[in-house]
């Protein structure tokens, strides 16, 4: 679905932010990308929907090259992006208008636009917020609206760039379960984070470091092997506990628990 081939990129003259990165992302996957600050996660993500063009190498989505001006429009419709800062990604004065912005650009008829605004608002559980001012919503609500405005374009892939980093734990769980639901309904998800707790739903983990992809594989395997810790990211307490239990031989690496619930289930089965 998404094919990234030997992509290098540097922001005007600085040290390269990406060094010859190659990765394939398949339809229906939930890929999480983690890495420290400045490791190139956002840069990589912005290549996928053509916001950035590779200095070398190529990015193709469903066979369309992002360098091809004529297909950029289609690419951005297929791959939507939700940004980190809830405050600065709104374009409309009201929630309804903001969500309508994407469909308006697609040139859809007014009736269809209104239908999409309604359905995407209710998909994120914010039906009835049409006339609210985006600036006055809470952080979590803002991110839900931002997600709704991407959903209104009916994308096949959604790119998330640290969308929960400015949210409180409750809103974070809300957004995460929305994303999980989208994935279950067939949307391909690429999820950038530097929070390891959020990997529970991912079926693939990519670890980035200084513009390189250092690891790519099953999140449970990568974490249980300790590859994550070598990349300078500390493990959350639950995973640290799981790792110690694993090392003490309590369970197999394949069923390495990533959350409190999973750990509880695994431990209960031991008896």
């Amino acid at each position: 679905m998404i094919s990234i081939q030997n992509v290098s990129y540097s922001y005007n003259g600085h040290i390269p932010a990406l060094h010859s990165v190659s990765v394939e992302i398949y339809k229906g996957e939930f890929v999480a990308i983690i890495g420290g600050n400045g490791s190139g996660k956002s840069t990589l993500l912005r290549h996928i929907n053509g916001l950035l063009l590779p200095s070398a190498g190529s990015v193709t989505i469903k066979g369309m090259d992002t360098k091809d001006i004529s297909s950029v429009f289609n690419i951005r419709q297929i791959a939507g992006m939700v940004f980190q800062d809830p405050g600065s990604q709104f374009i409309g004065m009201t929630v309804g208008e903001d969500i309508a912005f994407g469909p308006e650009n697609l040139g859809l008829p007014p009736k269809e636009i209104r239908r999409r605004v309604e359905s995407s608002l209710s998909a994120v559980g914010m039906a009835g917020y049409n006339d609210h001012t985006p600036g006055k919503l809470s952080g979590g609500q803002k991110q839900k609206v931002a997600l709704a405005s991407v959903l209104a374009m009916e994308p096949e892939v959604i790119l998330f760039d640290e969308v929960t980093s400015m949210l409180d734990p409750d809103s974070r769980m809300d957004i995460l379960s929305l994303i999980k639901q989208l994935h279950e309904n067939g949307t391909t998800v690429v999820y950038v984070t530097h929070c390891l707790d959020e990997l529970v739903h991912a079926d693939r983990l990519i670890i980035m470091e200084k513009g390189h992809i250092t690891h790519d594989g099953d999140p449970r395997l990568l974490i249980s092997r300790g590859d994550v810790m070598n990349s300078g990211l500390g493990l959350p307490p639950i995973m640290e506990l799981s790792r110690r239990l694993l090392n003490a031989g309590f369970f197999e690496p394949g069923c390495f628990p990533l959350s409190r619930e999973e750990l509880r289930d695994v431990l209960c089965q031991l008896k």
Binding site: L51, R76, F83, E104, N105, S149
Partner: peptide, 22 residues
Amino acid sequence: EDVSLAMESRCYRGSGRTSVHS
């Protein structure tokens, strides 16, 4: 810059747009 990124990634173009309001 943020808003222009958000606009771009939602397919903004100067022509061929429609409006929610008929």
